[in-house]
Design a protein around this nucleic acid. Structure first.
Lengths: 249, 249
DNA sequence: TAATTCATTCTTGCATGCAAGTTGAAATTT
DNA sequence: AAATTTCAACTTGCATGCAAGAATGAATTA
């Protein structure tokens, strides 16, 4: 499980958190404060504004978001369920880090589910497959473009878009949701090592293989390609994390 | 996604909900009311005390649990994330049903993840594999015993225990947690059709195959056996649900 | 009679109040 | 001086208060 760093000093003391509207929120017709708090805090964690080990009281976060404690409290509960923070009974929240073991676990889940998504996608009727393949190809194109310019953040964003599209297009909303949640957690680790890895030129080939299998309507091949792709990514990322000996991100 | 039944009459009007301690709760050193409410409501839904279409205000539920609205409110948010209820903006909560499509989606997720769990299990070092295999065998034994006595509920319970043990023993806490959540949702559908299905004598054989593959340390075979088992269950359950034309459970 | 408007009541979303529990340090003892 | 106890400030968990929004039904109009 997630291992937090107990004895850290709080770093992001007086940060101002923004309340922005994220896309993934279901249907925020009348946006409620809980969702706003949830999104803001989650973003702060994933973008390392709240680094692992950061400890804060609800009051403090509530002040930063200019709302009362109640919505923050609820948001924290949610975040704890996702494994991003731990609520220390009467001592506030602790932002958790990801150990290499955590990352490995997350990859297991993603590999299994994304494989299933690719398989499903390849089983869809032709027109839908073609449409999905086109979306995926656009993402891959964006990745190539970013790669040629050496723009790593843009590459990461396009890569993320590819994988989001993959699980989204498969038509299984639950699967999509779970993959999204788990991929969010991976995001931190990937961003952290983004500048340390060689430019991932191989990814484009992997993605092409997935797209081809989807186009061909070959579920087995699609699943295999998707899983292989993530496996390779995992085997590239994990040694880096262990080498860094940060042990936690 | 889950389709609720809009125009139902509330059935379980004055039910008294019990606050019992469930085993799955992480570490309830000092049990907080939110978890209590969450468990109680979830159990009520899964056991059909709150049937699909049941609509209730927070106040009402809070009274049944003899607590204030706040913990109930938080619990409802969690349950909505799991897809068990929908919060109707100012009209209370609606217990959702599972359409056959929902069940199919859930099976996709479980098949993928349980396959991964079995694979992981088969990759573990010998002693751990043996220990896990023994646990699994005990569950299978319980199933056989229940089957011989025609005790369907006992069989279902033992079957559940087998699958819980499988994902639990694989050592990936996140995977275990996700599978647990999703399997919970399946529980309703399975219980609903429990008396309508023929006695599932084939399950024992499937389980034996999984156990054998784990014992042999054959990840591929283990994964395949686990997935095949769930696939068969799905193909048996889904037609029944569609035939029942309840369309929602 | 049917449809529309209006008002009343109920319910939720969030803020705040209160009590229980925890932390950290001062004060006391050994 | 070290260890233990006591105490005060702070924080959370939950209850409650309040205001905004929605539903229901009455009253009015066509």
């Amino acid at each position: 499980m997630s291992a937090g760093i107990e004895g850290w000093t709080a770093v992001a003391q007086q940060t101002e958190l923004r309340l922005e509207k994220t896309e993934r929120t279901p249907e925020p017709v009348r946006p409620n404060l809980v969702d706003l708090a949830y999104d803001a805090i989650k973003r702060a964690i994933l973008e390392n504004t709240y680094p692992p080990g950061y400890q804060a009281g609800e009051m403090e976060v509530a002040r930063q978001l200019s709302m009362s404690r109640t919505p923050v409290h609820e948001a924290m509960t949610r975040l704890q369920e996702e494994g991003l923070v731990r609520i220390l009974p009467k001592r506030g929240i602790l932002v958790l880090g990801l150990s290499p073991a955590d990352v490995a676990d997350i990859y297991d889940v993603i590999i299994a589910l994304e494989g299933a998504a690719a398989e499903r996608l390849a089983r869809m009727p032709g027109p839908e497959r073609a449409r999905a393949a086109e979306v995926l190809e656009v993402c891959t194109g964006d990745m190539d473009a970013a790669l040629r310019q050496g723009d790593r953040p843009a590459w990461a964003k396009a890569d993320r878009a590819f994988h989001d599209a993959l699980s989204h297009a498969c038509g299984n909303a639950r699967l999509d949701r779970i993959v999204g949640t788990v991929a969010d957690q991976l995001h931190r680790a990937r961003m952290f090592t983004l500048s340390l890895r060689p430019l991932p030129t191989a990814s484009a080939i992997d993605h092409a293989a997935i797209i081809a299998a989807v186009r061909a309507g070959d579920p087995e091949a699609a699943s295999l390609a998707a899983r292989t792709h993530r496996l390779k990514a995992r085997d590239q990322l994990l040694p880096l994390l262990q080498e860094l000996r940060l042990s936690n991100i």
